[in-house]
């Protein structure tokens, strides 16, 4: 799933081809920032599924990639990003620049995914 597409909140917007532009640089190539709206952020805290945890534990007997966790963290990061996008949309922004991600393990077996950036209005230059 590409970043910046809103499947839940923005389903109608997605239908009309709306897409929030996300970059982790301060400027967007080919675009001019006309207005800075301010900081936007989104987070989610995910606990691991017991079944997945047991599966990962078994897999870890030999080591190697734990695909279940890779997917879980990817989905969670998308969710945090969507909350950030929803916030940017409520500010009438059409892009988020300087996006940063952080991950932290909170209280045994749960991880927090946090995304933040600056909501801006851009137009193609």
């Amino acid at each position: 799933m590409p970043w910046g597409v809103l499947p839940i909140h923005g389903s109608q917007l997605a239908k009309y081809g709306f897409r929030m532009l996300l970059v982790n640089t301060e400027t967007i190539p080919g675009h001019t920032i006309v207005e800075a709206k301010g900081l936007v952020n989104g987070n989610t805290i995910r606990a691991k599924h017991l079944g997945r945890d047991i599966g990962a534990g078994l897999k870890n007997l030999v080591g190697g990639e734990l695909t279940g966790y890779t997917e879980l963290l990817n989905e969670s990061r998308h969710e945090a990003t969507q909350r950030m996008i929803a916030q940017a949309m409520s500010m009438q922004a059409n892009a988020i620049v300087n996006v940063r991600f952080t991950t932290s393990a909170v209280a045994g077996g749960a991880a927090e995914l946090y995304a933040y950036g600056t909501a801006v209005v851009v137009r193609p230059s």
Binding site: T25, P29, A56, L61, E65, T70
Partner: peptide, 26 residues
């Protein structure tokens, strides 16, 4: 680098990501 490096031209930008979780083995 934060900017488009010399020798490259760009007219659009978009976030791309990749992740992997690896266990060490008992």
């Amino acid at each position: 680098l934060a900017n488009v490096p010399p020798g490259f031209t760009a007219s659009a930008g978009q976030l791309v990501t990749g992740n992997a979780v690896l266990g060490t083995g008992w």
